[in-house]
């Protein structure tokens, strides 16, 4: 073995310039997220096998994801079957809020990780199946960890990705966090009941988001007053009509 570099080829020696011309270069062009994306596609098949449409909710902490989910469940529960996967760094609090509505729910705690990935959601779907009386759902809502940056990089196998920005956060959010909007299908501007109290321009938020993603659908709503909720519920019901 070569005493210089441990290459095991003393016979074809190389002058020890350490240019190591016996090393091997492998060209790949492969996404580092490929493994995640493969599992995500399996998740998608799994969600479809349950008969459901998967929705991934992404936003900063405190944008009203859980409250919107509660209000959505209230309106959809009488006519559809819903399952929920809650992602949080710690605690069962969000799952508890959903469980009170008597909907099957699984809490995934990432234990510090700032996002859900496909592997965690894969586990979550299996756990959720234990909570279902028959393996049949219309909607699988996945509430990601509150974070507008990291969750955007991880496809979970959802059919639609929803990004929320609430009025108190400011209308510059799309411009400041572009990745979350580039890959989203729907942009929800939440807490519009607070428009009078904050300097939030719906036009600016819409314009900046559409620049990043011209195909983005946009809905403005308030979970508290119910304004805009009909449009959101119709958006969801149309998804299961098409499926």
């Amino acid at each position: 073995m070569c005493e210089w570099c441990g290459c095991g080829q003393p016979e074809e020696h190389h002058g020890h310039s350490h240019d190591h011309n016996h090393s091997k270069i492998i060209e790949l062009n492969k996404s580092i997220l490929e493994e995640n994306n493969k599992i995500a596609l399996k998740n998608k098949e799994h969600i479809e096998a349950l008969g459901a449409v998967g929705i991934n909710f992404i936003s900063s902490p405190g944008s009203g994801k859980t409250t919107l989910l509660q209000e959505t469940i209230k309106r959809l529960k009488p006519r559809t079957k819903i399952g929920v996967i809650e992602g949080d760094i710690e605690t069962q609090r969000d799952a508890q809020r959903i469980r009170e509505q008597k909907v099957p729910v699984v809490q995934l705690t990432t234990g510090g990780a700032c996002h859900l990935d496909a592997r965690l959601v894969h586990k979550g779907i299996h756990q959720l199946e234990h909570e279902l009386d028959d393996n049949n759902l219309n909607f699988l809502f996945i509430e990601n960890v509150g974070n507008l940056v990291c969750p955007a990089s991880f496809y979970l196998g959802e059919h639609k990705r929803v990004v929320l920005v609430s009025v108190p956060e400011g209308s510059d959010k799309p411009a400041k966090y572009p990745k979350a909007f580039i890959d989203a299908d729907l942009f929800i501007i939440s807490k519009i009941d607070l428009l009078d109290y904050f300097d939030f321009s719906i036009d600016e938020a819409k314009k900046e988001a559409l620049k990043l993603n011209p195909k983005l659908d946009i809905i403005c709503l308030s979970s508290v007053t119910g304004k805009g909720m009909d449009e959101w519920i119709n958006y969801l019901l149309n998804l299961i009509k098409k499926e």
Partner: peptide, 11 residues
């Protein structure tokens, strides 16, 4: 928006 592994040199 992706992150790609382009090349690996190994021995």
């Amino acid at each position: 928006g992706d992150i790609l592994l382009k090349e690996v040199e190994m021995e």
